[in-house]
Design a protein around this nucleic acid. Structure first.
Length: 255
DNA sequence: TGGCGATTTCCTGATT
DNA sequence: GAATCAGGAAATCGCC
């Protein structure tokens, strides 16, 4: 946790917002990584980034500051008052715009987690910055090594979340982001309905930075999933079903 | 730099 | 007639 004595200096932009650091970091709900509970050391680390709350996004930022020895003055925390799904939807440019080159580094850290999974945070192993971080990013790093552990059975593949079906799955699992665009018809069976097809296409287009996306193209991409077992046909308009090769749709994804 | 997977784009035709 | 579905074919893009 950032010292309260330095807090005002570290986060000028944050103080302009209408919330406080303690609002974001209620110690009872979100234990700090320096004093982790034995059972739940880091709540954010037990979930994929897409499912982080705003509190957990801030926890992660704080973790990045301390564990990667970032200069906290580089991070305008108010710019990251977003949910995990919104954070994941931010592009590298969005990060850079929010926090300059430090944002570039944070983006790399986030992609590291999304691509390689979330490490165990027990402070027992030295960890270099992600390889994807550019050399220029490292001006934010102090020289001391930092430590963490990786779970022994943690897979280093298969968690990248840029696929359309994962985008749909995460929307279905995040009602606050969904805005009635998608709705479960039968979650046990993985059957869902596209309620607002054009809104869905716009959202996917924003995600892919493609303003020419429409539902016709999106649905064509969905139909490709029939071949791979990601989706199964449902003989009803705007209704789809997750197939045997889709995962994580019936409960929050675990790594 | 080439191969590959995942879309994206365009298209025709069928169905609702 | 509009919206949607189905699927072929080729192009594009990012990653390895």
């Amino acid at each position: 946790m950032i010292d309260s004595s330095t807090h005002n200096l570290l986060m000028p932009a944050y103080h302009e917002a209408h919330f406080s650091w303690t609002d974001l970091f209620c110690a009872d709900l979100y234990p700090t990584y320096r004093d982790p509970s034995p059972d739940v050391p880091f709540q954010w680390s037990s979930l994929p980034p897409e499912h982080w709350t705003k509190h957990q996004v801030c926890e992660w930022l704080q973790y990045c500051c301390d564990n990667h020895k970032l200069d906290a003055t580089c991070i305008p925390f108010a710019q990251f008052n977003v949910t995990g799904l919104e954070l994941c939807n931010m592009s590298k440019d969005d990060f850079t715009e929010a926090a300059g080159a430090c944002g570039h580094f944070l983006y790399s850290l986030l992609q590291e987690i999304r691509t390689h999974g979330i490490p165990l945070l027990t402070g027992a192993e030295e960890v270099p910055p992600p390889q994807s971080a550019d050399r220029d990013d490292k001006v934010f790093l102090k020289s001391e090594p930092v430590k963490r552990n990786r779970a022994p059975n943690q897979h280093r593949h298969g968690v990248h979340n840029s696929h359309l079906w994962e985008f749909l799955r995460d929307l279905l699992l995040s009602p606050e982001q969904n805005d009635g665009i998608l709705d479960w018809e039968d979650q046990e069976q993985g059957i869902f309905r596209v309620v607002k097809s054009e809104a869905l296409a716009r959202m996917w287009g924003q995600r892919k930075r493609n303003d020419r996306m429409n539902y016709e193209k999106l649905s064509r991409a969905l139909r490709h999933y029939y071949k791979t077992g990601i989706l199964e046909r449902v003989d009803r308009r705007l209704v789809y079903k997750f197939g045997k090769n889709a995962y994580g749709w019936h409960r929050p994804v675990t790594y």
